[in-house]
Each structure stands twice: as structure tokens, then as C-alpha cells.
Design a protein around this nucleic acid. Sequence first.
DNA 1: GCCGTTTTCGGCCCGACTGTTTTCAGTCG
Length: 583
Amino acid sequence: MTVRNAQIAAVFDEIADLLELQGANPFRVRAYRNAARTLEAWPEEMAEWATQGRDFDALPGIGKDLAGKIGEILQRGTCAQLDRLRAQFPRGITDLLQVPGLGPRRVHALYHELGIRTPAQLLDAARAGRIRTLPGFGQASERRIAEAVAGHLERSTRWPIAHVASDVEALLAHLRAAPGVSEAMVAGSYRRRRDTVGDVDILVAAPPGHALADRLQSFDQVARVLAHGSTRASVVLRNGLQVDLRVVRPESFGAALVYFTGSKAHNIVLRGIARARRLKINEYGVYRTGGRGAGTRIAGETEASVYAAIGLPYIPPELREDHGEIEAAREGRLPVLVERADLRGDLHAHTDASDGHESLERMAQAAREAGLEYLAITDHSAGLKIAHGLDARRLLAQCEAIDRLNAGLRGITLLKGIEVEILPDGRLDLPDDVLARLDLVVGAVHSAFDLPRAKQTARILRAMDHPHFSILAHPNGRLFGTRGPCDVDMERIVRHARERGCALELNSQPERLDLFDLQCRMARDAGVPIAISSDAHRGADFRWLQYGVDQARRGWLEKGDVLNALPLGRLWKWLAATRTPGC
DNA sequence: GCCGTTTTCGGCCCGACTGTTTTCAGTCG
């Protein structure tokens, strides 16, 4: 059994939870949590490091002790310390920590005073009126806990970012229209353009004493109010999304934007740099802490002023994860991130010939209106029955139709392609002589998602070895809310793509956003081009490209890393070069 | 438990809100 980084992180998180319940030194708890976050985000597997004899304490935040525990977890799947801690607490008690409003102290009290060890028992106790009897708890606490547990048991915790965009835009417009508001922006993971968000943070610049919490509550989508003070408020929208509002004076807007955009890890590093310079960063600005000028505010109106105050250039929000961006900023080697306007074409789209909803002509027109110069038509192949996939005869007929259409099109060129099924054994779903007549071949897995890692990886590697293979579509197969990613060895796939000279897709559909951000970075580092593709099934879907670009930026991609940022002439050359010689 | 431009010990980000407190602890982000 190979132990993955995510499993090591889960062990460290559970240790952290149990140490918290035990009342351990909070900084010790934080060390475990930091280690878990580092491992989750690290692009290379520690199991691989172990076979290479590399030392785990080369990871940031991992010292001798945690390095030893990583080694132990790789061998046993757990570690002695976790075993000891588990023996001291009832199984599953850490679930209680997930209930909003319950932290370690209160869970400790609930367990020791009332014997509560599960969310269901907690709900029973709250309804029976037993919680209000505990010191430090009252009737209000009891009611809120009951609501939180009931909500916790049913609520989905994250949304694809595109699913909340219309609510967010409407709410921003509602807030901006309030008198006295000079700016309103989204912060948090939404602004960092993560693929999913758990809640939405909105920041507003307005004079002190402004009744913005009331303005928030008057938004017609608000279902209930969780909290409201003079500078903060939290509400839950009708769809269950939590929105946190913060109000600051205009002169603090930049500092507050840095603060609430995060990530938390990024901010902690910024504060460390500030401390070393005898400065303090909070949501109101950057302040001197030592000498005669102590307390003087030296920055904060803009984000750039905050970064400049600690000697750094502006860092784009998508990079603020403490994944090396601060070191890069210090050394002047921040990437110049790709932008939507850099995309010259789109290399994955469907028509009504398979499961798309519009004709060739309409898709071509919509692509041109989206500012694209070329569009690859890549309908499904026959193996995907549910999508009415194309067999060789229908595909060749479509090729002829594209040739005829191209002859009359202005401002857009259609490329002849296919999204061909990668069969479970790694063969492609169409004959070689048919694939040879296409401009590009996009290969995709739509079946046998649950193959074991070695077989799934070998299946994809074999498909990539096909002489006409161009791009691997949605490489993980994740469909948010439907299925998780396939178990594949992405490092091997990236290495193989480099050796084979083919590309990986970053699928821009909001439920996919696949490649993931860290994998984009891995591909970039390996020199493998990425196609940011819409996978459009109707003309309106070209708007998804923005979400793909957002994720590409999180993966540190520059224009030069993106295949469809090439002008058409250079794309033709790339496509010709990627075909294995002799075919 | 980690770490070093205050350095191998003594720090570790910091402020707002809530509830139950009568001055603050717990939780959250």
C-alpha cells in the first residue's frame, strides 16, 4: 500500500484535533496543522521521496520530529502518537470540532460534563435543554448549537466558484449602490480564484458608523443573520452560502484587502517579514512598532502600498498561498501570469453532432464573438454511447463539412478534431487511418474510473504513446459533486507528456477545472504545454475560459506555457511536431 | 513542534463578535 501525502496530512490533522482537546500548547498544535497543509499542497509524494532517500525535514515547517512521524506513517499508515491519543478519547469526537461555534474547550466540556461524543448526541442534549446547565453555556448558546448541528448535518460545505458568481455580483452591486460606499470587493478564496469556495468574504470601504450591516441584511437573498456588529456582519443566503461582510475606512482598504484575501498562510509569512522590520501589519494598515515613531501608520490605502512597506512587489491574489510566491517576489522572479486576452483559440468543443447543443456554424460564430481566432471541433467518439459519439463515417463527414465551412468563414478557423475515448486498456476508440486525417486528437477517459492507480496510469500512458495523440483532456476526471478524481500518478503522466511531446488540458468547466492548480505548476516546471479549453457544449460556454485562466494563474502559468495562446501558424507547427515521425 | 537579519531559547498574527462575564473566555477568520 502506498501512503499518499493526503493521508499523512489527515493523520497530522487528527493529532492536532486531539492535542487541542487535550489542551496542549497551541503552537504545537499549529505545527501539526502547518505540516498537514504543507503536505496537502506539496506536488511530490513523500512515498516517492522515501524511495529516493530524500530527507522529509527539507519541507518547510517539518523538523526532526515530524520527519520521523512521516516515515512511520509511510510504513504503517498511522503513528504511535495518534494511537496513544485515540486511546484517550472516544472514537469520532473530533467530528464535534467541525460544528460551527464549537472549539476544543467547549467540546472538552461537553464530553466531560455531559458525556457527549457525537453530533447526534449533541443535538439531543440541546433539544433536551441540558446544555444550558453547563458553566459558560446559556440558552442562547444552546439554541445556536442546535441550529449549527442541524445545519452541519445537512449542508454541503463548498461550491464551485461559478455557482456563486451571480449571487456575489448581485450582492456587490447592492452594496456599491449604498450611499457613502466608495468601494466593494470580494476577498477570500473567491478572489484567490480557488476552484471552490466555502463562504464569501466581502470588503467595503465606507466612513465609520455606516449602517452597512443593515444594507447587507436588506439584500433580497438573505435568509438569516448570524452576526452583525459595527464593522462585521455574517449572513446566510437562501441557497445556504455564508457571506461575511467587513467594513473599513477607505484609507485602510488595501490593508484590509490583503488581510481578508489571505491565504492565512500567506498573511502569516507577511507578518513575520513585517516583524523582522519592526513593523506590524493588521487589517487597518502597516504600523511602526519600535523607536520614536512607534504606532505611526506607514501604508494601507492600497495593497501595493502594504507589500511595498515590507520591501515586496505586488503579488497577484491567485498566488497568495505561501507556495513560494513570497520568495519569488523577493528575488524579482514572480511569473507574468497568463490572462484571458492571451488566449487565441480553444482546442476542445462540441456540436450537436454528439452531445453539444448547437451547430458547427453557431459554435464558430460564438467562438469568434468570444475573441478567438481558432476553434477545434472535438465531438465525442462512438464509444461514448450516451453522448451519441461519432463513428469513423460520421467523423469524416464532419471533416468535410468543416472544410466547406472554413472556406467561407472570416475571422475564425475551425480545426478538425475528436475527443476520442481512451479505452480501459489504453487503446483509442477510432482506427489509426481516421485519426491520421484529423488536425488534432484529444484523448479522454469517460469509463472505468475506478481502475487501480497502476492500471489507470498505464492506460493513460499507453494512449499518449499513440502516434496521433495531441492532448490529454481533463486528466483527473473529477466532476465536482458527482465523482472525485481518478487515482492516477500525475507525476508520471507529466513526465511522459514531456518525453512524448504532447500537451495536457486544463478543462475550464466549473465542475471540472482539471488539471488542478498544483499540477499545472508541475507541468509548467516540466515544460509540458497546457491547453486551457472550454469543453463548450453551446456558444455561451466559452465564458468558462475565464475560470480556466483563473486556475492556470493559480498554477503560475505564463502566456508561454499555454498551448492555445499560440497564434494559429505556430499551433500548426506544434501539432505537426507532436505526431510521431513516420505517421 | 518549528525556527533563526531580535537566533539554539523564547517566541510563534491579531482583531472582532458573542454570550455570559461583570472584565473576559472562546471562537472565528
